[in-house]
Design a protein around this nucleic acid. Structure first.
Length: 511
RNA sequence: GCGGGCGUAGCUCAGUGGUAGAGCAUCACGUUGCCAACGUGACUGUCGUGAGUUCGACUCUCAUCGCCCGCUCCA
């Protein structure tokens, strides 16, 4: 049933111009979507609300004073060293091996394995394969761990392998690879097969395509912010604590794009990096956690459909001190929840990495405290296109009582179309009055004028587009200058004076 | 990446080794006085794509692409 709902939403998105499959006439392309006329309008509304709440009119801080966040729009392509420093590209296109248990990642050509052989008198027992990282300490490391295994297996002698007894993990058969115990674990079989692990899209800057001209499409917008930390401090007279916010596209070459626009290869993020003194980071983490949830609720998402999910310690990146996701009950995860935004306490990891790799001075001198430090960072990173998906799912409503069946109940201030303006019939001057009203309203609100086909059909179309109100010019309009207001959610009608329509919308929608 | 299912008009689907079909939708004209109304007419397809078998393939075979589901992955 839940998959059914999702299918219906996908169909409606296409039918009404919210989201189309990318390059559909060529058979589509997996993991990419085009946002149609209503989709981009809805997306812009979310984006604008975020920008306003974060940059133009940020919340009041915990101490009761306004906080400062500045905007940024950094380049999608940056110097490739950016992604080495951030950890997104490890060893530049070497095959990598992951440990499923410890989440560690190793270069496949650095892992060597040897068999642990236990000698008990004349008997010899094979105790399995042990992996170590290549280097001077390789045999020492091996002995240390292998001896424990021998002891556990009833004692006896360990036959220490020679250097030549070590095999490269990547040259072993998959069957044997699955018997190997990884360098940082005690369980055999946790290492993945070696694979080219690069979720970043590659391109080349300049006409010559070689390693030196290789560049990457950013896999997140955050790094562009760290790259401009110094520029911002030097030019904007900002003082810590402050934030830098950015909205933009990011690209990840996902293995399995799934679930409509939930996991796509090109998506849009809304990220803010909040720079603060290390001592205050925890307080700001709690602050932003609540602020972000409040904002999602302000878009008209029902409280019971949103939860916080704190990351377990073993789920955290090694540098991260805490992380929480805001999750939504998507139709394809229900009754469970899926990620919508992550709020991460990143410590000083990013700026430290960039400082070391770039040699730039990324410390901040705090005049008030009279000390120099690398700021700590709290990062609320929300998915804009995921937010769009959430609003679509949230708005989707079946109403069997009306002929149109489907109503998109967007919060009026988020709705991509605010009003439909219709002449009841195409005569007696009604189209002219309707058009005049349309021209008056469209300078302030996204409106649609429609005079085609029956009135019921036009209402139904507006229900699927999610327009909260329709104004219909009818015979009575000429007599007393009133129009019919039709409410999307109740389908009920009332009459208001035609010159009060703009005021009516202002009251209901704001602006 | 692995396994399973699917692919015919915008949508929902029929169909047969021999020239491609219906309903709905869309558009035009008329009609119409408040919830996908009615009448008349019009448009719509490389039958997902490519190759093979065949005198002839939407139909059979193979490959490929896309979608859905389950695993895997999601730093």
């Amino acid at each position: 049933m839940a998959e059914n709902v999702m299918e219906e939403i996908v169909a409606l998105c296409k039918r009404r111009g919210f989201v189309y499959p990318a390059s559909e006439i060529y058979g589509g392309i997996n993991g990419f979507w085009d946002y149609g006329p209503l989709g981009v309008q809805l997306k812009n509304n979310i984006r604008d609300s975020w920008w306003k709440t974060m940059v133009e009119c940020p919340p009041i801080g915990p101490d009761g004073h306004p906080i400062c966040i500045v905007g940024l729009d950094s380049s999608i392509i940056q110097n490739p060293k950016t992604w080495v420093a951030s950890g997104h590209v490890g060893g530049f296109n070497d095959p990598m091996v992951d440990c499923r248990e410890t989440k560690s990642r190793y270069r496949a050509d650095h892992i060597k394995c040897a068999q642990v052989v236990q000698a008990k008198g004349e008997e010899k027992h094979d105790l399995g394969w042990l992996a170590v990282l290549e280097g001077d300490q390789m045999i020492v490391d091996f002995e240390k761990r292998a001896k424990k295994l021998v002891k556990k297996a009833g004692g006896g002698e360990l036959i220490t392998p020679e250097f030549d007894d070590f095999h490269l993990f990547m040259n072993m058969t998959p069957e044997i690879q699955q018997q190997v115990t990884g360098p940082d674990t005690k369980t055999p079989g946790t290492l993945t097969e070696p694979r080219m692990f690069n979720l970043m899209f590659e391109s080349y800057a300049g006409a010559i395509q070689d390693e030196s001209s290789k560049v990457y499409l950013r896999p997140e917008t955050a790094q562009g912010i760290f790259l401009n930390f110094k520029n911002t401090v030097d030019t904007m007279r900002v003082k810590i604590p402050f934030g830098i916010a950015q909205i933009g596209k990011a690209f990840r070459n996902e293995v399995t794009p799934r679930n409509f626009i939930f996991r796509s290869r090109e998506f849009e993020q809304m990220e803010m990096e909040w720079f603060c003194p290390p001592d205050d980071a925890r307080q700001w983490y709690d602050f932003w956690k609540q602020q972000r949830m409040d904002w999602w609720l302000s878009l008209g998402i029902k409280k019971e459909n949103l939860i916080f999910r704190d990351h377990d310690d073993d789920e955290l990146a090694h540098y991260s001190k805490a992380c929480v996701d805001v999750e939504y009950k998507y139709p394809f995860t229900a009754p469970g929840f899926g990620e919508l935004e992550g709020i991460a306490h990143r410590g000083c990891f990013d700026l430290t990495q960039h400082k070391e790799h770039s040699k730039a001075k990324l410390e901040y001198f705090d005049q008030q405290r009279n000390e120099r430090y690398i700021p700590h960072v709290i990062e609320p990173a929300g998915g804009l296109t995921r937010g769009l998906l959430v609003l679509l799912c949230e708005a989707y409503t079946i109403d069997e009582s009306r002929p149109s069946k489907v109503v998109m109940k967007f919060d009026p201030k988020m709705a991509p179309v605010k009003a439909g303006i219709f002449p009841l019939v195409n005569k007696d001057g009604m189209p002219e009055i309707a058009e005049k009203l349309y021209l008056e309203l469209r300078s302030k609100y996204v409106c649609q004028f429609d005079s085609k086909q029956s009135i019921g059909k036009r209402y139904a179309r507006m229900d699927e587009a999610g327009a909260p109100y329709c104004f219909t010019i009818d015979g009575q309009t000429k007599e007393d200058n009133t129009v019919t207001v039709r409410d999307r959610d109740t389908a009920e009608q009332s009459r208001i004076s035609i010159d009060k329509v703009a005021g009516f919308l202002a009251e209901k929608i704001g602006k």
